[in-house]
Amino acid sequence: MPAEETRLRITEQDGVTRIEFLDRNILDEASIQRIGEEITDIIDNSSDPKLLINFSQVDHMSSAALGTLITIHHKIRNRSGELRLANIDPQIQEVFSITKLDRIFTIHEDVDDAMKAFG
């Protein structure tokens, strides 16, 4: 797999950038860094970023991936944008709960629910 290949599927709908992970496992440090850079580019190129990250494909993720999500959360907040997460597997939801990050992120059951919630 080429190093520069995207690990994200990115689409636009109703002013919201929808991001879906292509990998089932978000564990590899280099991949996590690349994902962070790609999403940062999206945020930096928007004055009012509205991002929906869809976890429907994800089976495993590491604390390093959580760290990247927090960095993304900060960047979006600094630009007065919105970040919503959706379709998180119950086992991964538990990881958010243990780390208390379910208090930081806005997590929706599915994409439709998240899309309706954007202002």
């Binding site: 590491s62 604390s63 390093a64 959580l66 760290g67 990247t68 927090i70 960095t71 959360h73 900060h74 990881v95 243990i98 780390t99 208390k100 990050l101 208090r103 930081i104």
Partner: peptide, 21 residues
């Protein structure tokens, strides 16, 4: 402790918590 209020939004430091959990 990564779950302490002041550390909650730090990007790192959660690995050990997850291992112990």
């Amino acid at each position: 402790d990564p779950t302490a209020e002041e550390n909650l939004t730090r990007p790192g430091g959660r690995g050990l918590l997850l291992i112990r959990s």
